[in-house]
Design a binder for these strands. Sequence first.
DNA 1: ATTTCACGTAACTTATGTTGTTTCGAAACT
DNA 2: AGTTTCGAAACAACATAAGTTACGTGAAAT
Lengths: 152, 152
Amino acid sequence: MRQDSRLSRMLHVLIHMGHHDGALTSDMIAKMLDTNPVVIRRTMAGLREKGYVASEKGHGGGWTLSRPLSELTLLDIYRAVGEPSVFAVGPAYDMPGCVIEQGVNATLKDVFAEAEQLLLKRFAGVTLADIAPDFAPPAAKNEAEAKGCRSD
Amino acid sequence: MRQDSRLSRMLHVLIHMGHHDGALTSDMIAKMLDTNPVVIRRTMAGLREKGYVASEKGHGGGWTLSRPLSELTLLDIYRAVGEPSVFAVGPAYDMPGCVIEQGVNATLKDVFAEAEQLLLKRFAGVTLADIAPDFAPPAAKNEAEAKGCRSD
DNA sequence: ATTTCACGTAACTTATGTTGTTTCGAAACT
DNA sequence: AGTTTCGAAACAACATAAGTTACGTGAAAT
């Protein structure tokens, strides 16, 4: 199954924003992630609705964080990008009127629900400041950030 | 994200097979699941490779269980249908040369791995005989099985 | 005031993977 | 021989994330 990378990408962007002075434009972000500015705006829109980021038009405009990385959890971002379901597998339909299918669905639902709860619980316990921990001390990869994160 | 229903469907089929004398043809199974016999053969092929079911051609042929439901776990079936990844979300790429992206990927990888392990552990603990538990005692839904599980 | 920058949005295309369908061949029973 | 049933290839249908193009809006710089 194809994997949805919106969560991963937004985390990447937000942490960069947290270590960057001033606004980042959609174009800059798109280059960082090797994609298109429209894709960025589309995904960032969810974060803006939640109040995690703000966007400004015109000269000097772009995207800025509305709160520090330490006050944003993985769960916040996960919800903001609006993932419909964490799992790529699941029941076929719900309730086709067969006892066996109902049993199968009930069992799978339980197991998946438990795994999802664990996942969300872990998400809630990790702030964006916790990711990429050894960032402040040295200076080697501040260059990397400055050059836009792509290797080319 | 569209969900992969192969696991769910195969569980459904296998449990039916466990409560059925004689072989079930792909056509019968397809009608049960309201789908196509070719889809059934395609998915059952994975189970046959693992030795969980056997297929016979010609008159009186079809699919039969090679071992009792109590000796098949959700994990067995999950692996047999060859799910590549349980999750619909995941990292964008692996290792694009950016410290932040690496941190994001590492964090997500950890969290997802933990949830997957829990999932697989639960899968391993449930046999197909454990699903649809109240099957033997009464008789009401043996009719349902007899009529092929679909309501139409 | 005009130009330029940058987001906002709609519409369309592309890519990928499951599912659905058709078709032909092979094997086995009647 | 004829019918049943699986095996496998090939192709269409469908859904969704991602990529792309195009045009509009608002804000700052000149």
